[in-house]
Amino acid sequence: MKAKKIGALLLAAVMTFSLAACGGGGKDDSKGDSSSAGSSSDKKRVCFVARASADTFAAWLTTEMKKEAKNYDNIELTCVSGEGDDNKENGLLEDCVTKAYDLVIVQSNNNGAQAPYVQQLVDAGIPVITTNPTTHQSDLDGSDDDSVMEGTGTVDADPVAQAKVSADRAVEEVPKDANVVVLNGPSGNFHADKRREAWTEYFFDKRPDVKILYEDYANWNSDEALTLMESWVQSGTHIDAIISMNDNMAAGAIEAIRDDKEYVGADGTPSFLAYGVDGTAQGCLLIKEGMLTSTALQSAADLAKKNMEYADKVVNGEMKVTEVNDYVDAPEINKDNVQEYIQMYIDNGEITDDGSLSE
């Protein structure tokens, strides 16, 4: 099984590198040091708190934030990562209060766990934009109020729409009386929870013949998904479909059965379906290969562009942070249109010309 994990380890190394620094003209590191020489004192200091470097989407978003920050000479961007640990991310948010940033962009690992610390930022008078996912008022006070948390703004995507893209086609594609497995993101994460609810509404409620053979949390992580899938296939019951709340977990599950003749024929044709969300470069390559059936694009580039655009307007007094409320689209990616998205990743350097992930 060591061979299977090599790819995942290499990918994690790439993502860790991506999260090491973000720059808009300043010196930034994983500890949040945004000091720099020259005129940095004249710049507005913005911190992006990502949820984890081992999460392909968080890494992609961080990379795109880095690119976008270069377009704003008046902003110095610092990027830090909570590494999928609520305590670490909460500590980073407290550190943002101490360092008195001009604005903080928060990508929560667990909405409820981070909400009180987002409130600390608000109470300190620091503008906060929550992104991928939105922090809601209900995350803070346990109410039924799903509006954006008071005193904050948001740039996000609709997780229900993202999951519905693949759930709708799965209704027609998944064979009768199929056995499926479900890979969930972190419990309490808005996107993870809502994507799972959407699969219930748009697939499982419409296909009562389908049996959920196994379901567990892989926390957006490919290695965790790989381990779960290795365990699940040992039962001997064929798995007809992998339903994953993101591409990264789907990739891990696929890696676990890539060399299993029961799941992949000698000609490379899979005998299973697999669905994800995010439309990452890795996910697109898996679709082209025939291993991933479909996904929905959650463009980190679009999220980063909107986040930095609004951050610039807020720190310059052009708008209030509570006026920031914007969402990106969730187009479907499948075998019929995947090449255009692969070309997008070739153009931005995430996929090489020979069709492999950039290192």
Rank of each mutant, 00 (worst) to 15 (best):
L9M: 10
A13L: 12
M15R: 12
K27I: 09
K27R: 11
S30D: 07
S35Q: 11
S41A: 15
K44A: 12
V46G: 05
A50E: 03
A52R: 07
E68L: 06
K70H: 04
I75C: 09
N87T: 14
V104Q: 05
A113V: 05
Q120A: 15
L121I: 03
V122M: 09
A124V: 04
A124W: 11
G125Q: 08
N132L: 04
H136S: 07
D141S: 06
V155W: 01
V155S: 08
A157C: 10
P159H: 00
Q162E: 13
E173F: 06
V181E: 04
V182W: 04
S187H: 02
A192W: 01
T200C: 00
Y202P: 03
F204D: 01
P208N: 08
W220Y: 12
L228I: 00
M229F: 09
S231N: 15
G236L: 03
T237H: 07
I239N: 09
N246H: 03
R258H: 09
V264C: 06
F272W: 07
G279I: 11
G279C: 05
L285A: 06
I287P: 01
A296W: 04
L303I: 14
L303K: 03
A304F: 09
N307I: 14
V321L: 10
A330M: 12
N334L: 01
N334P: 05
V338Q: 08
M344P: 00
I351F: 10
D353C: 01
G355R: 12
